[in-house]
Design a binder for these strands. Structure first.
Lengths: 215, 215
DNA sequence: AGTTGAATTACACGGCCGTATAACAAGGGG
DNA sequence: CCCCTTGTTATACGGCCGTGTAATTCAACT
C-alpha cells in the first residue's frame, strides 16, 4: 500500500474556506442536490472524509456556506458607500444601482439563493441568518432614505424602505433569472426611476451628477 | 404469490394529476431532493414503477409539475379580474392586491418556486415555461396600466410595467419568506402606495372606493 | 363468460448518498 | 533524528436513488 495520495497540511481557516467555496460552486452549478459530500471534497481537492473533520455534519457545512453567500451579497451592495459621493440622494442612487447590477445581479447568485431557500425555511439557524441579512440590508437602505432632505414619519420611513427594498429585490430576481429579457442598463434606469418616484426624489439626476465626479 | 397489492385503474388524466400534485407537495415540504420517484409514488398512492408508465423520465414529471405551479399562480392573481370592478384604476389595484396576498403570497409557493429555479436555469423547456409565464403576467399588468386615464409612451409603459412587476415580485418574495416581519395588510398597503406613486395614481383610494361596491 | 390489451405491481440492477472508523503520513518539538 | 500529535486518506456500511423488465390483475369488449 504505497500509492496513497500525497497531501499538504493546511490551516483550518484555509480548509474551511476551500470547502465552503466548493460547496457554493456546486450549488450554483447544479442545485443543492449536486453539492454532495464527495463532489464538494473533489472540488476542494481533498477526500471526502476530510469534510467531517471540519464540519461535524453536512448540514453544518451548508449553514456556513449560506452565511458566506449572504455576507458576500450584502458586501457587494455596500461597497459603493465606502468611496461613494457625499450627497444623500447620490449615495442612495449609487447603492440602489449597485444592488441591481452585477455582481449582485447574477444568475449564479440567484440560483445559489434559491438553492438554499428550503434550508432557510426549515432550519432555524439558517432562518436567523436570512432574517438578519435581510433586515440588515433594509436598515442600510432605510438610513440612506432617512438622510434625504425631506421629512417623513417613522412609519412612512419604514414603508418607504420596504417598498424600495421590494423594487430592488424584484429587479434583482427578474434581471438574474431572465437576463436576456432586459436591455443593458435598463434595469438600473427603471430601478432608479421607480425608487425616485416613491421617494419623490430625482435619483437619476443625482446619479448622473456624481458619475463625473467619481469616475 | 397472492398478496399482491390490489389497485383500481384510473384515467390517464387523473393519474397524471395525482402524480404532479404529489410531486409539488413533496418539493414544497422538503425541497427538490425530497421529491424522489419512490416518495412521489407513495404520496400519490401508487407504486414507483407507475411513474414511468406516465412520464418517460423523472425530468418530464418535473417539467409538468413546474408548468402546473406557474399556471396556478398566475390564475390566482388573475381571478380577481373576472368579477372585479370596471374602473381601470380599481382593476389595477385589485390585481396588485391579489398578487401580494394569499394564496399567491405563501411560504409554500415561494419554496416551490425556488425548488424549481435550478431546473429553470438549466433546462431549456423549463426556461421557456418560465419566460412565458413571467412575460404573460407582465403583459396583464401592462394592459391594466395602459387602461389608466393617462398618456404614456410605449417605452414608458414598458418601464412602468417592469417597475410595478418588480414591486409585486419583491413584496411577494419578502412576504412569503419572512411573513412574521410584516403586519397584517401592511404589504398590500405598501404595494398599492408604491405602484400608485410610480404611476401617479391613487390606487389605495380606488381600492377603497370599490371595496364596498363588490363585497 | 372468455379473451385480450394495458394499467399496475413487483423486483432487480448499478450507482451514489451521508456517515463511521481505521490506517497512514506530514511536519513541528524534543 | 526520531517521536508524536493530528490532519488526511482509505475503505466499509446500510440505505436510497433512477431506471429497466417481467409478472400480474383489472376492466372493457365481444
Amino acid at each position: 500500500m504505497t500509492d496513497r495520495r500525497p497531501y499538504r497540511r493546511e490551516t483550518e481557516e484555509r480548509r474551511r474556506d476551500d470547502l465552503i467555496a466548493a460547496a457554493l460552486d456546486l450549488v450554483s452549478e447544479g442545485g443543492p442536490q449536486a453539492a454532495t459530500v464527495r463532489a464538494i471534497a473533489q472540488r476542494a481537492g481533498v477526500t471526502s472524509g476530510l469534510i467531517r473533520h471540519y464540519f461535524s455534519t453536512k448540514e453544518e457545512l451548508t449553514r456556513a456556506a449560506y452565511r458566506r453567500l449572504m455576507d458576500r451579497m450584502t458586501a457587494d451592495s455596500a461597497i459603493v458607500l465606502q468611496d461613494g459621493p457625499a450627497d444623500p440622494a447620490a449615495r442612495l442612487a449609487w447603492f440602489v444601482a449597485a444592488s441591481i447590477s452585477p455582481p449582485v445581479v447574477d444568475p449564479v447568485a440567484v440560483g445559489l439563493w434559491a438553492g438554499f431557500l428550503h434550508g432557510v425555511q426549515r432550519d432555524a439557524a439558517m432562518r436567523d441568518v436570512h432574517a438578519a441579512t435581510y433586515l440588515g440590508f433594509r436598515d442600510v437602505l432605510q438610513s440612506l432614505i432617512a438622510a434625504l432632505p425631506r421629512t417623513a414619519s417613522a412609519t412612512q420611513l419604514r414603508a418607504d424602505a420596504i417598498a424600495c427594498n421590494a423594487i430592488i429585490d424584484g429587479l434583482w430576481l427578474e434581471g438574474s433569472v431572465l437576463p436576456e429579457a432586459f436591455a443593458a442598463g435598463e434595469i438600473v434606469d427603471i430601478g432608479l426611476a421607480a425608487v425616485g418616484a416613491i421617494l419623490k426624489t430625482d435619483l437619476a439626476a443625482a446619479m448622473a451628477a456624481t458619475k463625473r465626479d467619481i469616475l
